[in-house]
Nucleic acid binder design. Structure first.
Lengths: 210, 210, 210, 210
DNA sequence: GATGAATGAGTGTTCATTCAT
DNA sequence: GATGAATGAACACTCATTCAT
C-alpha cells in the first residue's frame, strides 16, 4: 500500500470467461474471510491468494493492487447499505410522517447487523484508504432516497427535505457504528434502535413546516 | 506495531531532569506535527524523533513503543473533548430543558473544531490500535456529565436520564465527525450545528416523563 | 532472535521449482561460509542473503527466522556425527571388547575433524538457541548405537550397557571439543586420540560383569 | 559488545575507598543476579546498573565495558573450580593410586554443583567472549595440580604424569557440564559421579608404568 | 565522583509488487 | 493465462557507550 493510488474499484480486466469470473469471486470472498479470521493488519495479498486457492500473480491479474481489492469489498458493503435504504424508501413511497423514522432506522440497522462481523475492518479500510469518494457517493445516494421519501409524506410537508435528509444520513452513518461496535451502547440493541427512532421521529416532527 | 499491546499512555520513565521534560514535550509535539504533515501511514518513529530534534533511542526512552506514542496523543485529544463537555455541563447545573441540547452540541463542536486538523488521524489511530478502553472511558465520563445535567433540569424530568445520556453521547461521538470530515455535511458548519441541536432538543422533549 | 522460538528445522516452504532448491542450498552454504569468515556474532540475515547472492526476502521465504537457519546448520552437523557413530557401530556388530573403544573414539574424532572449522560456531549456536532438544536427540541416538554395540560383544558382557553408553557419549561429546578447540590439548591430536581410547577401553574393561 | 576487546578482568580503577569497593561488589553481584533472573541475552549494562542501585555511568567507571564485567564473573567461577581442585590435591599430597580419581572427580563436581545455576550462562560467556586465555589458564593450573598429585602417588608411578593430567582435565571440563546441564545424564547425579570416577580410576591404573 | 539523558548504528522481519518460466 | 520465486525498501526497536551537568 503506502502511497495513494487511483481508484479502480472493479477488476481491471473484465473477465469474459466463466473460469475467470469464478476466480474473481474466489479472491473477493477470500479477502473477506481473511479480514474476518486474521484482521486487516495481517491481511496481505499472498495470504488472500492462498486462501482463494490461486497464486499471487493471478490475484494481480484481476486487481491492480491491494487497495483496489479492499475498496471492492468496501464498495459492496456500502452498496448493500444504500440499497437497503433505497428499497425501504421505495416500498412505501407516501408514508405518514410518524412512520418515516422507523422505516429508515430499521432498514439501516438490519442491513448493518447482517454485516456486523466485517464492519469494523471496513471502517478501517475506509479510513486508511482514500475512500472518501466512495463513502460520499454512498451517503449521497442514501440522502437522496431519504429526501424523496420526505418530499412525499402523506400528512404534512418539510421546508428543507434535502437538509433533513443529509442530517439524518450523517447521524445514521455516524451513530449506528458507535452502537454496533459497543463503544457506547444502551444495554441491548433493541433499546438502541428504539432510542434512535425516537430521536429521528421527534427531529422530523420538529422540523415540519406548517 | 502489529498486535495489541498493553496501554502505557504515559512516558515509561518519569523524566527527572528538566532537559528530559523538554524532550518528552518535543516528541509529543513532533508526533502531532508529523501526523498533520505526513499522515498516520507515513508516521514512523524515526521521523518523529528527527522532527523532535532527538534520536530514535531517545524517543524509546520515554515511550515504550510506537503505539504508546500514538495513544498518548489520542488520550489528550479525548481528554479535551470530555473536559469541554464536563465544563459546559458544570457551568450550568440546573438548566431549562430547552437549553440542554444547545449546551451540549455547542461545547462538543467547539472543542472538536479546535482540533479539526488532527482529528481524522486520531480516528485512524483509534481504529488501528486497541484504543477501545480509552474511548469507552471518555464516552462514559461524557455520558455521566450529561446524565448529571439531565437529572437536574429546572423545568421537568426524564424517566431514564442514563439511557438518554448514552444515546446522546453516541450520536455526538458518531455524527459530529461525519460532519467535520465533510463526508456528509450541510453546506455550512453553522447549519450543521443548528440541525444537530434541533435533533437533540426534540429528542429530549419527546423523552421527558410527565 | 532473543527469545526461544519453536524449532522449524527445515525450510518452511517446500520448494517446488528447481530454482528454489538451488536457492535453499545457496542460503545454507552461505550461512556456513559467513559463520566461518565473520563468526556467529557478525552473522546477520542480510549478510547471509548477500553471500548467497539473493535478497533477504528470499531467505525468509525458506527459513522463517534466523534461528531456524542456524538450527538447520547445527542439525546437519549433529546428523553427521551421529551417522558416523552409527555407521562405525553397524559395520562391526560383534566386536571384541578391546576394539570397542577404538571404534567409537576413532569414528567420532574423524567426523569431528572433518568439520573442525565450523565446530566452535556450532557450539555457540547450540548454547544460544534452544537447541537442547536437538542435541539430546543426537546424543540419544548416539548412545543407542553404542549400547547396541556393547550388548553384542563377542567376548564377555556388560551389566548395564545403557549406563555405559550414556557415560561414553557424554565423555565423547564433552571431551572431544575440549581437545579440538585446543583449550586443553595434548601436544598432538594423535596422542589425544590414543589417550581417550585408553581411557574408554580401560573403563569398559573395568565395567564388564563377571 | 560486538567486536573483540582487550581483557581487563579487574576493575580498571583500583577502588581505594570503601564506598567504591562496595559499589564494585554491588555491580558484580547484580551481574550474577541478572544472569540468573534474565539470562545472558537480556543482560545489558543498564539493567545491571539498576539492579546494583547505581547509574550506568558509575558502572562504566569501574568496568571499561560489558565484556570486562562478564569476564570478571567468569574469572571468579573458574577460580573457584581451580581452587577446589588445588585444595583437594593439596590436602592429600601422597595418595594411593586408587584414591586419586575419587579425589579429583569429587572435588570438581562439588564445586561445580555449588554454582550450577549460573553455570550455563557462564559457558555462553566463555564462548561468546574471547575467554580462551582465561580458560586455558584455569585448565593449566588445574592440570598442574593434578600432575603434582600424580607425581607423588604412594604406591606406584606414572610414565607421563603431565599427559595424564591434561587428559583428565579435558575430560573433567568437558564431561561434567554435559552431565550437569542434563544434556545426557545418567538417572541420578550420584551415579554419574560413580561412573566418571570409575572411568578415571581405570584410566590411571591402565596408564601406570611398571 | 555520580548521574542519567542522549546517541545512532545495527538487526530481524514483512510485504506489495514484478516477471521469467 | 497462471505460477510462485525473487525483490528490497521500509520499519520498529535495542543497547553499548559517552558526556554535559
Amino acid at each position: 500500500m503506502g502511497n495513494a493510488v487511483q481508484l479502480p474499484l472493479t477488476p481491471r480486466k473484465a473477465p469474459r470467461q466463466e473460469r475467470a469470473i469464478a476466480t474473481v469471486d474466489a479472491i473477493f470472498e477470500a479477502t473477506i474471510q481473511v479480514l474476518l479470521s486474521d484482521g486487516l493488519i495481517r491481511l496481505n495479498t499472498t495470504r488472500v491468494a492462498n486462501r482463494a486457492g490461486v497464486s499471487v500473480g493471478t490475484l494481480y491479474q484481476y486487481y491492480p493492487n491491494k487497495q483496489a481489492l479492499l475498496l471492492a469489498v468496501l464498495e459492496r458493503h456500502l452498496e448493500m447499505l444504500v440499497v437497503a435504504i433505497e428499497k425501504a424508501c421505495g416500498e412505501n413511497p407516501c408514508p405518514k410522517k410518524e412512520a418515516i423514522a422507523e422505516t429508515i432506522v430499521g432498514a439501516y440497522l438490519q442491513a448493518k447487523m447482517a454485516q456486523a462481523e466485517v464492519s469494523p475492518s471496513l471502517y478501517r479500510i475506509a479510513m486508511e484508504l482514500d475512500a472518501r469518494a466512495l463513502i460520499e457517493a454512498a451517503a449521497q445516494r442514501n440522502a437522496q432516497a431519504i429526501e424523496a421519501l420526505l418530499s412525499n409524506v402523506a400528512d404534512g410537508s418539510f421546508a428543507d427535505p434535502s437538509l433533513l435528509a443529509k442530517t439524518l444520513t450523517a447521524a445514521l452513518y455516524g451513530t449506528v457504528p458507535a452502537f454496533c461496535h459497543r463503544v457506547l451502547a444502551p444495554a441491548d440493541g433493541l433499546e438502541a434502535q428504539r432510542q434512535l427512532t425516537t430521536m429521528f421521529r421527534s427531529y422530523l416532527v420538529a422540523s415540519q413546516s406548517g
